[in-house]
């Protein structure tokens, strides 16, 4: 019994889950709404898009480092798709715009992937550059602006999977059918990571790129694929978000990279070291979104929320990084 307990206590994931539970209990104590059916459904609804973006970020974090370009890419893909298919005149299948959006995301991802595979630049700087290009294209030549969706895409956003009503106060909550997409995505990526050379290669590269090459992995190809896949998935996220909201607001998603990166780190992913997987993304995102959305509930005034979120992110990062304490008294780096 003891060794298992010790192992569990040593993992960052344990503390994240514990914190989430504690927080949930606190909110429940104040509002009585947290663990209700509407509360849970609303939470699931809130984390949906973030979960998707989390995959993109995780792919980049595992083999290289942070990716800050995916909000721009997601917005760009969604915007282009919506401008072509978002009017009332389009009544065809939802599949077509979905695939188109994915294709645009893939293209953007390929640009990231090519540069990252070919050169040894820090991912932060490369993706800063591509982010600028993507958002520039969107706002510049394409003159992106807020538009309401009609037609198929708007309908898609309103399909619900689960609809619940809270018996106590009659509030309703809906879980969009898009949640299914998220589940499918996670299953696919899980399979890729676990059961293909691409997935294992990704971890090997994160661990030691040169060794991975020497072991016979085609590292360039794997990195290229990782970012292409990431771009595609980000586009899916953008698509989902746009349909959900029922309108295109290009600037909505921008600036969201901070939350996702923080969520991944909090959840236990170590950037550029090949440590951490999908489970870490999930618990990190859930914890962070939970906190963000419920600060008001706990009585924290609106304007203080950024401070709070920032502080929690910093605290969580410090704890996550320092949880790998060395087992002896030797300090190798001061």
């Amino acid at each position: 019994m003891m060794p298992i307990m010790k192992k569990i206590l040593n993992r960052t994931e344990t503390y994240v889950i514990l914190t989430a539970l504690l927080f949930g209990i606190a909110v429940e104590a104040v509002s009585g709404q947290f663990f209700s059916n509407t509360g849970m459904i609303n939470l699931a609804r809130a984390v949906m898009v973030y979960l998707v973006f989390g995959i993109t970020e995780m792919l980049s974090l595992t083999c290289a480092g942070p990716d800050v370009s995916y909000p721009a890419l997601a917005s760009l893909s969604a915007f282009i798709t919506a401008s072509w298919f978002g009017s009332a005149s389009y009544q065809g299948s939802i599949i077509v715009p979905f695939l188109v959006c994915m294709a645009i995301g893939a293209l953007g991802g390929m640009i990231n992937g090519y540069i990252m595979a070919r050169f040894d630049f820090p991912s932060l700087i490369v993706t800063l550059g591509t982010s600028s290009v993507f958002s520039g294209i969107m706002y510049g030549p394409l003159k992106a602006s807020n538009t309401i969706l009609h037609g198929t895409m708007a309908e898609f956003g309103s399909i619900n999977m689960i609809a619940v009503t809270n018996p106590e106060n009659g509030l309703k909550a809906n879980l969009p059918a898009q949640f299914l997409i998220v589940t499918v995505l996670y299953l696919i990526v899980f399979f890729l990571l676990r059961y293909t050379m691409f997935g294992r290669g990704l971890y090997a590269i994160g661990s030691d790129k040169a060794a991975a090459e020497r072991s016979g992995f085609k590292t360039g190809r794997i990195i290229f694929l990782a970012y292409t896949l990431g771009g595609t998935i980000a586009a899916i996220g953008g698509f989902m978000y746009t349909c959900n909201v029922g309108a295109i607001s290009p600037s909505d998603l921008m600036g969201g990279e901070m939350i996702i990166i923080a969520a991944c780190t909090l959840g236990g992913i170590r950037p550029g070291a090949g440590i951490g997987g999908l489970f870490n993304v999930i618990i990190g995102v859930v914890l962070l979104i939970m906190i963000q959305n419920n600060l008001l509930m706990l009585g924290i005034p609106l304007y203080f929320q950024d401070v709070f979120t920032g502080a929690i992110i910093l605290l969580g990062t410090i704890v996550a990084i320092n949880s790998q304490r060395s087992r002896n008294g030797i300090k190798k780096n001061g």
């Binding site: 480092g65 901070m258 401070v307 920032g310 502080a311 990084i321």
Partner: peptide, 17 residues
């Protein structure tokens, strides 16, 4: 020992707040 990118990203948010 927080990596510079994460630390300044986080502190930036805090200062923004």
């Amino acid at each position: 020992k927080v990596p510079a990118m994460l630390a300044t990203l986080g502190s930036g948010q805090l200062i923004l707040g």
